[in-house]
């Protein structure tokens, strides 16, 4: 069982901050435009963004650490095995012969920490996007090459 690169915690922290800010703006707009129109709304304007800020702060501090702690992957003999999740735990198996192709992708935040994401595509409809985040770029390439060897063009 392998863990992700610890730097991924910082990436996730930035994601959580971004998400918190987004929802704060959203609730602020909601507060001004809709909630304040309700005749007997018991809270002051700006209350719901504060609630969002509080929840956001807690999750931003706690979640990245927990997420990292519970994220594992393993290259077994015949299949790729992923185990992750804090509140909802998900174990996934993708047999190598089912992998159609593998992408390495990197967004701006990940580039800051020199991390990459491995996106594994199968023909499946639901779990079509198995993603291993937070891998050092060279390692992601190594994994991609390793997995590519197994990938067979298999008819559905």
């Amino acid at each position: 069982m392998m863990q992700l690169n610890p730097d991924v915690k910082s990436v996730w922290t930035i994601y959580y901050i971004r998400r918190t800010l987004f929802f704060m703006v959203l609730t602020l707009a909601l507060d001004y435009l809709a909630l304040s129109e309700i005749p007997k709304w018991p809270f002051f304007t700006g209350f719901s963004p504060l609630v969002v800020l509080f929840i956001g702060l807690v999750t931003t501090i706690v979640m990245p650490k927990l997420k990292y702690k519970y994220w594992f992957f393993e290259l077994r003999d015949d299949e790729l095995y992923l185990k992750r999740g804090v509140l909802t735990k998900i174990d996934s198996i993708a047999p190598y012969c089912r992998i159609q192709h593998i992408d390495i992708s990197q967004n701006i935040v990940e580039r800051l920490f020199n991390l990459s994401r491995l996106v594994i595509y199968t023909a499946g409809t639901k779990g079509a996007d198995l993603i291993i985040p937070g891998l050092p770029h060279y390692y992601a390439q190594e994994l991609q090459n390793k997995l590519k060897e197994y990938t067979v063009e298999d008819a559905v």
């Binding site: 735990k89 998900i90 174990d91 198996i93 993708a94 047999p95 089912r98 199968t122 779990g127 559905v156």
Partner: peptide
């Protein structure tokens, strides 16, 4: 033979 991927999922309430 038609399996693509298999997942096991358990939410907080399930656990």
């Amino acid at each position: 033979e038609k399996i693509q991927t298999i997942h096991m999922r358990s939410s907080y309430f399930q656990r």
